[in-house]
Amino acid sequence: MKKIAVITTGGTIACTTDPETGRSIAGKLTGEKLLGAYKDLSSDQVELEVFSAFQIPSNAMDFDKLLLLKSVVESFLIRTDISGVVITHGTDTLEETSYFLSLAITSHKPVVNTGSQRIPGEIGSDSFANIRDAITLAAADQPDCSGTLLVFNEKIFSPRSVRKVHTSNVDGFAGGQIGTIDRGEVFIQCTATAAKACFDTLPALAVVQLIKAASGMSDLFIRAASTSNAQGLVIEGFGRGHVPPGWLPAIKAAVDSGMKVVITSACDQGRVYPAYEYPGSFADLTANGVISGQDLDAKKARILLACLIGSGQAVDSQSFL
Score class of each variant (00 low, 15 high):
Leu67Cys: 11
Gly27Pro: 03
Asp256Lys: 14
Val86Tyr: 05
Val46Lys: 01
Lys260Trp: 02
Ala301Leu: 13
Pro274Val: 05
Cys198Arg: 15
Pro143Ile: 10
Ala213Leu: 01
Ser215Gln: 14
Leu321Ser: 11
Gly239His: 04
Ile181Pro: 05
Ser52Asp: 02
Lys28Asp: 06
Gln142Val: 03
Ser146Lys: 15
Leu220Ser: 12
Phe51Ser: 00
Gly179Arg: 13
Phe199Glu: 02
Ser24Ala: 14
Met1Trp: 01
Ala194Gln: 13
Arg79Ile: 06
Ile25Trp: 00
Ala214Trp: 06
Ile87Asp: 00
Glu95Asn: 14
Asp295Ala: 15
Cys190Asn: 08
Ala206Gly: 05
Ser102Tyr: 03
Lys65Arg: 14
Phe128Met: 10
Thr227Phe: 06
Ala206Pro: 14
Asp92Trp: 07
Val186Phe: 00
Ile13His: 13
Ala253Trp: 05
Ile291Val: 15
Asp144Ile: 06
Thr9Trp: 00
Gly124Gln: 08
Arg79Asp: 03
Ala275Gln: 11
Thr148Ile: 02
Ala134Gln: 10
Thr17Gly: 01
Gly232Ser: 07
Phe63Leu: 09
Glu154Tyr: 04
Phe238Leu: 12
Ala140Thr: 13
Pro279Lys: 14
Asp171Tyr: 12
Gln45Glu: 14
Ala129His: 08
Pro279Thr: 09
Arg271Leu: 02
Pro19Trp: 01
Lys28Glu: 08
Ile291Glu: 10
Cys198Gln: 15
Thr114Val: 12
Leu285Thr: 09
Val72His: 04
Ala225Gln: 01
Ala129Cys: 08
Ile56Gln: 00
Pro159Leu: 04
Ile291Gln: 11
Pro274Gly: 08
Phe187Gly: 00
Arg240Val: 13
Val262His: 12
Val243Leu: 08
Phe54Asp: 02
Arg183Met: 01
Met1Val: 14
Leu150Ser: 13
Gly90Gln: 11
Arg23Asn: 12
Thr191Asp: 13
Ser43Asn: 11
Phe63Gln: 14
Ile4Gly: 03
Phe187Ala: 00
Leu296Asn: 12
Phe100Ala: 12
Asp62Gly: 13
Ile135Gly: 03
Tyr38His: 02
Leu67Val: 11
Val111Ser: 05
Val151Asn: 12
Leu210Thr: 15
Ala194Val: 03
Phe51Pro: 00
Ile4Phe: 03
Phe100Ile: 09
Ser215Tyr: 06
Val162Ile: 08
Arg132Tyr: 05
Ala138Asp: 01
Ala53His: 01
Tyr278Met: 02
Phe238Ile: 05
Thr91Leu: 10
Met259Phe: 07
Leu68Cys: 07
Thr201Cys: 10
Val234Ala: 04
Ser24Arg: 10
Leu66Trp: 15
Leu150Ile: 07
Thr8Leu: 06
Gly10Asp: 02
Asp268Gln: 13
Ile119Tyr: 14
Lys212Phe: 07
Ser102Met: 03
Val151Met: 06
Ile119Cys: 04
Val111Glu: 04
Gly258Lys: 04
Ala283Pro: 03
Ser71Arg: 15
Glu47Ile: 11
Ala139Phe: 01
Ser43Tyr: 03
Pro57Ser: 07
Leu296Glu: 08
Ile188Tyr: 11
Glu49Asn: 09
Pro203Tyr: 02
His166Cys: 06
Ala213Pro: 02
Leu34Trp: 07
Val272Gln: 06
Ala287Phe: 02
Thr80Val: 11
Phe128Thr: 06
Ile56Ala: 03
Thr12Ser: 15
Gly310Phe: 05
Val111Lys: 08
Ser218Ala: 13
Pro279Cys: 06
Val162Lys: 07
